[in-house]
């Protein structure tokens, strides 16, 4: 018996999926903001030259970059409350985990961006009599920021996809709704296909934009 596709199941449950999608977008934006801010602090710690700041910052970035996001999410959701006594809702645990994960990668983007500016330029600026702060503000940062834009945009797209992992701890975003509807309607094929299409439709234009950014901000030295 040939399988009969029933996309009306998707249409009927569209409001639920859209609600999930809204949550997915909110999670992406909020964790990106956390990641940008915390990542900057971590990068500054690593660049500070003081070991007491640099070592913990390095351990933080390496731990978050070398372990799976799922492990981080589950760890923060189940272990952190046991250790601190503060129980966070799935939403906040997920946000903390995603935010810190992004922060670790962001810290590396900031750091490599600053290092990528040729050392000679810094020396030249010093030779011209600029102070450290002036060199940073006038010479290094303007160039470094341009180089940080493409990897940050790529991070954003990866983050948008990674929010789906929060479904495993019960954050009600798009993937969670999909799994719920798939078992509720007995139509996993239609539901999962529809959700994959939604993710694709949103992530693909963004990754095209990322490619454009890489072209636009390519370093010519």
């Amino acid at each position: 018996m040939p399988y009969i596709w029933r996309f009306d199941v998707v249409i009927a449950n569209l409001p639920i999926l859209l609600q999930g999608l809204w949550m997915t977008c909110a999670l992406t934006v909020l964790s990106m903001v956390i990641g940008l801010v915390v990542g900057l602090v971590v990068a500054l710690f690593r660049l500070s030259g003081w070991r007491i700041l640099a070592v913990p910052a390095t351990v933080f970035t390496e731990l978050f970059r070398t372990t799976p996001l799922l492990v981080q999410v589950v760890w923060i959701f189940t272990v952190l409350p046991l250790m601190t006594g503060v129980a966070l809702s799935p939403f906040f645990s997920g946000l903390v985990a995603l935010g810190l994960n992004v922060a670790a990668f962001m810290a590396e983007i900031y750091r490599t961006g600053i290092y990528s500016v040729d050392r000679g330029q810094r020396h030249a600026a010093h030779a011209l009599g600029m102070t450290n702060a002036q060199t940073m503000r006038r010479i290094v940062l303007p160039q470094a920021v341009m180089r940080m834009v493409p990897p940050m945009a790529a991070m954003w797209v990866a983050l948008f996809k990674d929010t789906s992992i929060l479904a495993t701890i019960g954050v009600v975003e798009l993937m969670y709704e999909a799994r719920y509807l798939a078992s509720d309607t007995f139509r996993p094929l239609e539901i999962f296909t529809a959700v994959a299409v939604v993710y694709f439709a949103l992530a693909y234009p963004q990754s095209l934009l990322v490619n454009r950014l890489y072209e636009r901000f390519r370093v010519r030295e």
Binding site: V157, K161, D162, T163, S164, I165, A167, T168, M175, A178, R179, A182, P188, L189, F192, T193, V195, A196, Y199, F200, A203, Y204, S207
Partner: peptide, 18 residues
Amino acid sequence: DIWRSTPFLAQILWVFFA
């Protein structure tokens, strides 16, 4: 583009269930 623009979780659930 398909494999790069969808979440891995969506892919694994699709392959296993759909």
